[in-house]
Nucleic acid binder design. Structure first.
Length: 241
DNA sequence: CGGCGCACCTGAGTGC
DNA sequence: TGCACTCAGGTGCGCC
């Protein structure tokens, strides 16, 4: 994101709303422009007094009219900052929206929708759940946990799943996301929530990160494999294809 | 178009 | 003590 465009587009404008779509944070300005953040793995947004010392890996500081600074800090630089200037914001947001999948907490997250999306696909269900063009917001930890809770093997091809199985995936996914949000998220390495505090859902994880530990369902050893380039944990006894 | 592999990045952890 | 290496993950790109 060129700093010049950032300046020209948002400097002097009033923030009127903050929304979320997929894993992106949308900060809306009164003139219609939108500042878009993705926190990646390690990104953090925080409010600081102007005089607060700059931290390592601070990438952007925005001075607000209350003399506080909104600061974006990201150790691993997997995050992103984008601006949709006012004169193109509506079109850019439409393009952005159409490139993102179903919101788990939205009205389209139904067994019928997922069955339709899966009909002509043969990818493993875990890859499907994590594909943000199909479903937004489910990362590796919650994909692993959802499939364990639903007793479905991560390698199961999506076109072989019944509507009943999709409903089970939906129910488990919503339960897990709700519990995880209530616990403040999962702090595996260095994640911090919006409050600046760590999350505690990792204490309730059943399989993620538990290679060779006993399955909470049957006591068998948890397997770890790589699927789609990502660590995949499951119980081969409790989760069937 | 679908599916897959990989690059991006840095700090923590491990082994010698 | 220090070095080399591996691993973690969301997203987008490029290839078949």
């Amino acid at each position: 994101m060129p700093r010049k465009l950032l300046h020209e587009s948002i400097q002097g404008h009033r923030i009127t709303a903050i929304d979320r779509r997929a894993k992106y944070l949308l900060i809306r300005m009164q003139d219609g422009s939108v500042l878009v953040f993705h926190l990646g793995m390690t990104g953090k947004l925080g409010m600081f007094p102007m005089a607060a010392p700059k931290a390592p890996h601070d990438h952007l500081r925005l001075l607000l009219d209350n003399e506080m600074e909104l600061r974006f800090n990201d150790v691993r630089r997997f995050g992103s900052i984008t601006v949709w200037p006012a004169d193109h914001a509506i079109i850019q947001e439409e393009e952005f929206n159409s490139s993102k999948g179903i919101e788990p907490f939205g009205p389209e997250f139904t067994a019928a929708s997922l069955t339709r999306l899966a009909r002509r696909r043969s990818m493993p269900v875990k890859t499907f759940l994590m594909n943000s063009r199909l479903i937004a917001g489910i990362g590796n930890i919650y994909a692993n946990e959802t499939l364990f809770a639903a007793s479905i093997h991560p390698q199961t091809r999506v076109n072989l799943l019944s509507e009943k199985q999709w409903q089970k995936i939906i129910d488990c996914c919503l339960r897990i996301l709700t519990l995880a949000i209530a616990a403040g998220g999962s702090t595996i390495s260095d994640f911090l929530g919006a409050s600046g505090n760590p999350g505690y859902f990792q204490l309730q994880l059943a399989v993620y990160g538990k290679k060779d530990e006993p399955c909470p369902g049957c006591g068998a050893k948890i397997n770890k494999e790589t699927l789609g380039g990502r660590a995949t944990y499951y119980c081969s006894n409790c989760q069937s294809i």
